[in-house]
Simulated scan of single mutants.
Amino acid sequence: MGLLYFNFKHNAFIYILYYMTILSANCIENEDVECGVLREKFANASAQFTLCAIDKSRPITICEKCVNTYVDVLDSFQNMSKAVDNGTSCFDKFVNQDRLQIVQILYDNSVDLWTRAKCNECYDSDNMIHNLTVSNKTLQFQTYYEDFTNCTSNYVDDFCSGCMKDYVKLDNYYKTISNINEKIGVCMDIVDIMNITWNLWSNNCCKYRRHNEYIFIGSSVGVLLFTILFYFILLFCKQKTAPTIIQQSRFFESLNIFRD
């Protein structure tokens, strides 16, 4: 009876250790899966943001069209930095112990692209990336731009005279929100839209002004050449007058003889 009781206690203890080992292994496996999932989410987010940035590079609409994928990059990176795997941070496992710093480089490249495009200038964020709302100046610029594009679409050939007012309004407003002391004063989406608008207006509406300028320049050059030619003609065609020598007459010569 005592031996049977001992065997029962021994077997029960073994079963308890077995189930505890299985439970511990499952916990570790679940933590490994969690870190792997977070890493996979970050990889997908960075890939989607890169794909979106390339797709929206011409015309540049990265700040408007890629904002959600950029937020996913920040979220997945932050979640991975906070997660713990068996007492070890996932961030330490996948970032700090990686000599190539692949995760960190991908994250830095995404942030650098967003920063160089000054996309935050298009939004009112209050330093909270999840509270991004389009700024009032961006909305106002989009309104002026839509007015201009709607105007140009109503004209088949010559939209210069009919859309002059909308173009001037758009151009003046852009100058008020852009920073002339920096290479890019507003987000790159607005800068690229304005560059396209300037090129459109210059190629279609400045030809009349250039025509008048050509007439003025041609007239000025003609007057200058005529003046130079006139002075050259005076220089080479003017007759040189010889000095007049007055000779004494015989009457005065005879008077001189008597005086002698």
Results as ranks from 00 to 15, higher is better:
M1A: 13
G2H: 14
L4W: 10
L4I: 13
N7D: 03
K9M: 09
I14H: 13
I16E: 02
Y18K: 14
N30Y: 12
E31D: 02
V33M: 09
E34G: 03
R39Q: 07
R39A: 12
E40C: 02
K41F: 08
F42K: 05
A47N: 07
T50P: 00
T50N: 03
D55V: 11
S57I: 04
R58V: 09
I60W: 01
T69P: 03
L74M: 10
M80G: 01
S81V: 08
K82S: 15
A83E: 14
G87M: 05
T88I: 15
N96Q: 06
D98N: 11
R99C: 11
D108Y: 11
V111E: 05
R116K: 15
K118M: 11
C122N: 14
M128C: 06
T133F: 04
V134K: 11
V134I: 14
S135C: 02
K137W: 01
K137S: 13
T138D: 06
F141I: 10
T143C: 03
Y144F: 13
Y144L: 12
D147W: 10
D147V: 14
N150C: 07
N154I: 10
V156A: 11
D158P: 03
F159N: 12
S161N: 08
D166N: 14
N172L: 05
Y174Q: 00
K175A: 01
K175S: 00
T176L: 10
I180W: 07
N181D: 11
E182W: 06
M194H: 04
N195H: 10
T197W: 04
T197E: 07
W198A: 03
Y208D: 15
R210E: 08
E213P: 02
Y214G: 10
F216M: 08
V221Q: 10
G222P: 00
G222F: 00
T227C: 08
T227I: 14
F232I: 13
I233K: 15
L235I: 15
K238Q: 11
T241R: 04
A242Q: 11
S254Y: 07
L255Y: 03
F258I: 08
